[in-house]
Design a protein around this nucleic acid. Structure first.
Lengths: 338, 338
DNA sequence: TACTTTTGGTTAATCGATTAAACAAATATA
DNA sequence: TATATTTGTTTAATCGATTAACCAAAAGTA
């Protein structure tokens, strides 16, 4: 095939005017007469003119593309965040490029390179669990384009962030379990070095103390939060002399693993042990019993991250100011704790 | 910020040579001396040079970007397809841009426009359920870039396709159920106008006939295949005077809905009714009882779609030849039918 | 009438990288 | 020694759209 696209020049030739006039006509420049504009648009349509984005982006120094980095796409949370982000950005004339890191630091670095290479106007990212070294994110900042983090942020990096209040979410969960009569609550948490998981752990500890409940070390477990590890850690908890009567798991996937173990051993949920997850993944309402979980307002997070980005590009001067938006989460109570 | 990036010119100035020499040195042109190459690469590193992709893409008429259109990203099937596609394409120097149609025809058209506008070198897509009008896909073809469809293809459109053999998959399922002693097998299928679902229906009918089993109209139901509709259609089947002893559902989501109804009504699965889904979504192994399903070899589909694309760009002449790759699927037997 | 403004364009430079063509210097060949 | 070839680089054009600067013609103003 190798069909050559119609360019401004082609339109200009047909009408015997300059390409500059054509360009201005298509962009509704005031200095072009209505008559010319009509003629140009007519010919453009006839020739099926598609502007060459590369050329205009190069000239304008602006690609109207926003890069998005996700730990993974097959999560309803991330999927929903992106959907809402896209809606806001599309309206403002931006398109998005999605890349996934698969929770790998190496992949994440590659993604950043790809996006910078594609000359995106900004990057909105949620960091991989693995990521500790922040030099690659510094690279974005030194490139002079806005960087907005969501969900998995990093305080040391001086950039904008949109997420939920993890500390308060833990409190909310503990309040709920205490109200249901639980006296011995365990927590299967994420890695402490990840800020959001650390905050959930802190919230758990403080809430437990507040209610004068036992906060034995054996009740607080650090986990990779995969389904497999959820199974493993639940087994550990069941092996304790003094079993917990409730388990708060910092991820729905690990919570599901825990539930499988409880089901397999014939331990009744919620009668014997109550269970709470985190993330409100769709399957939490599908399994038996359905799992109580925390909704993170993915729609708002996506929307706000996009709007934060737009806040920068609409100003000429990009002064990256710390813009932390912390939303309240919502507890969705289901059978596993009710 | 608005930091201006280093360009070829900056490097050229430092070394007092031409930008052409710099460009060639960085691209390892044989006509540049080893000494110069070393010096150029050294300076490039020092100045943290990042090539401007827009400029080179414009000049070369090639963006090294491949557009991907997915009905949705939060499905493990699509997620896995993309992951494998990306691996193959990255190795060949291509990067991908993911867009999601959310099963909406309108959104799909917008996605196509976005991708063409971004000057991708090719498009790999799986069509939205809604899509009937193919003119937008014709637009891609008339743009002269390769188009490869996967999973949800369309025979009328003369393009390459990678997918599984849906007709045979139905046969495989029926054979399995017959072997388990089922005598009255129902099918909750998708919309007949979608090719893959139509093939599954044809396979079901032919396999049923082959075994001289009853193929009453009431046993074959057309569905949107959402979880909700799965529940609805299962209720219908249970209301029949002559209930089926097995149900083959063309999607895991709808199969899960069906399972919920069966569980709610205390009907034992697989003892009273056996159940088979389609797609091998992760939750099929997580629910109780786990659901027998069909694996679609997402890894291979992704890889092959990518390779098909590469097959075009490596040749100079792009002759879009019909290149249909049909893979065998695999039945994953779990508790719901065992 | 003479000068200023407005209208509706045109010309030419530009974005940054690539590349065909040209060319000077070094080396090889007759 | 004279000519041909190779080596290493420069010059200049190019991709397509945008835009600053310029300009001619028409219209307005004193």
């Amino acid at each position: 095939m190798n069909i050559k696209r119609t360019t401004l020049k082609d339109i200009a030739n047909v009408l015997s005017i300059s390409t500059a006039a054509v360009s201005k006509a298509l962009n509704d420049d005031t200095r072009i007469s209505v008559k010319t504009k009509k003629a140009v648009k007519q010919v453009a349509k006839e020739l099926n003119y598609q502007p060459n984005h590369l050329a205009s982006a190069l000239r304008k120094g602006k690609s109207n593309l926003v890069g998005v980095i996700l730990p993974r796409t097959n999560s309803s949370f991330f999927s929903s965040v992106v959907e809402n982000m896209e809606e806001v950005l599309n309206k403002a004339g931006y398109n998005i490029i999605i890349t996934q890191s698969n929770e790998s630091f190496e992949k994440e670095c590659k993604n950043i390179d790809t996006l910078l290479y594609t000359q995106v106007d900004g990057i909105i990212a949620s960091m991989a669990n693995e990521t500790v070294d922040l030099s690659y994110y510094e690279k974005i900042k030194s490139n002079g384009i806005p960087l907005i983090l969501f969900d998995r942020g990093e305080n040391d990096l001086n950039v904008d962030y949109v997420g939920i209040n993890d500390y308060d979410s833990s409190h909310m969960i503990i309040e709920h379990l205490v109200a249901k009569g639980c006296k011995r609550i365990a927590h299967i948490g994420g890695y402490r070095r990840t800020r959001i998981f650390n905050n959930r752990i802190r919230g758990y500890i403080d809430a437990i103390k507040k209610h004068d409940l036992p906060h034995d070390d054996e009740l607080l477990i650090e986990s990779s939060l995969t389904l497999e590890d959820g199974r493993r850690q639940m087994k550990k908890l069941l092996a304790l002399k003094n079993r917990p009567d409730a388990v708060y798991v910092a991820s729905d996937y690990a919570a599901l693993g825990a539930l499988q173990i409880l089901n397999e051993r014939g331990i009744k949920v919620p009668e014997e042990i109550k269970l709470v997850g985190f993330g409100n993944e769709p399957f939490t309402s599908l399994v038996t019993p359905s799992i109580t979980s925390v909704s993170q307002h993915s729609e708002q997070i996506g929307r706000l991250a996009a709007e934060t980005f737009l806040g920068y590009v609409e100003k000429d001067v990009v002064v990256q100011s710390l813009n932390k938006i912390i939303l309240d989460s919502e507890l969705i109570v289901r059978s596993s704790s009710n």
